[in-house]
């Protein structure tokens, strides 16, 4: 195997787990509330800006930005949902109302970031010790190792929560049968509030980790994250946590390998091509819910 190939595979695994994390937080909200959070990418981006402030401006480690991003985004989402959540669910057409509402939120967050940080690209500047590792003839920046390391702790923790705790099971059950949750006694409104806030917190942390991997971001980078997030969860199967992880891996691998074989500009195209093919052949995604099939 050439070192270029090894490099592409290492990159794909690193990005795959981060894309998976991006999809996981998005799929939790979709599952619990049946809404497409179009502002998800901006929540991720807000996390990247938290990392920028904590590291580049204040000089602390990016690890310190992780709890800050989680708490900040959690609280903002909590407030947002407390104000708008009930109204949206009570709207005549909740899906359309949420769609427009979150589109508005995404524009609002992007303009807020533009106001606070200007349109210039920003990056996380922090000197890790050592700066990089040399493995299998590859130079791997420590920032990337840290990001992937944190993701590799977070993803299993999320899976434990979703598959082993009663609240996690209720969240997964919401995508299967929302009405039945009420029958067994779950306060679905409250579940949605918690799901939305936790999802935003995770999105913020994902933003910190992505800022360590991607060189720079602007107030307009949010849309890319939203699109990546949706591609990942549609690919894997809406509402399926395992699908989100699988979708993230597939998207990252197709991106990296196509970049290696054909070129940078074809990288993203390959991911979308796979998406279109999967949706055409298996509309429910790779790990779709039974309800979608029947």
């Amino acid at each position: 195997m050439t070192s270029l190939m090894t490099g592409a595979i290492v990159n794909a695994i690193a990005l795959g787990i981060l894309y998976g994390l991006l999809g996981l937080s998005l799929t939790i909200v979709y599952g619990a509330m049946r809404i497409a959070n179009l502002a998800h990418g901006e929540m991720v981006l807000a996390g990247s800006y938290v990392a920028y402030v904590v590291t580049t401006q204040l000089g602390y480690s990016p690890l310190a930005a992780i709890p800050v991003a989680f708490i900040l985004l959690f609280l903002l989402a909590f407030a947002l949902f407390a104000v708008a959540g009930r109204r949206l669910q009570a709207a005549r057409d909740p899906e359309m109302a949420s769609f427009l509402f979150f589109y508005g939120v995404s524009l609002m967050v992007a303009s807020g970031l533009l106001f606070l940080f200007d349109a210039d690209a920003r990056s996380v500047i922090f000197q890790f010790q050592p700066l990089s590792y040399r493995v299998l003839g590859l130079v791997i920046p420590k920032a990337r190792v840290v990001a992937v390391g944190v993701a590799m702790v977070l993803v299993p923790a999320l899976f434990l929560f979703l598959y082993r705790t009663t609240s996690g099971k209720a969240l997964r059950a919401a995508v299967m049968n929302r009405d039945a949750l009420r029958i067994v006694g779950v306060d679905v409104e409250r579940l949605s509030l918690v799901a939305f806030s936790v999802s935003a917190g995770i999105a913020g942390v994902t933003g910190v980790l992505l800022a360590l991997v991607f060189p720079a971001f602007t107030p307009f980078s949010g849309l890319d994250y939203t699109i990546t997030g949706f591609v990942v969860i549609v690919l894997g199967g809406l509402g399926s946590p395992l699908g989100a992880l699988l979708g993230g891996m597939i998207f990252a691998f197709s991106e990296q390998l196509t970049t290696l074989w054909i070129g940078q500009s074809a990288g993203v195209l390959a991911g979308f091509l796979i998406l279109v093919l999967v949706v055409a052949i298996r509309p429910a995604g790779l790990i779709g819910q039974a309800e979608w099939k029947s």
């Binding site: 009663t166 009405d179 039945a180 006694g185």
Partner: peptide
């Protein structure tokens, strides 16, 4: 209810666990 109120992708046991929500 008349229509299924089960969580079909969860195990039988998980359906019962959610039935103990309170």
């Amino acid at each position: 209810p008349q229509n299924s109120s089960l969580f079909l992708d969860l195990s039988v046991e998980d359906n019962l666990i959610l039935g103990c929500w309170p």
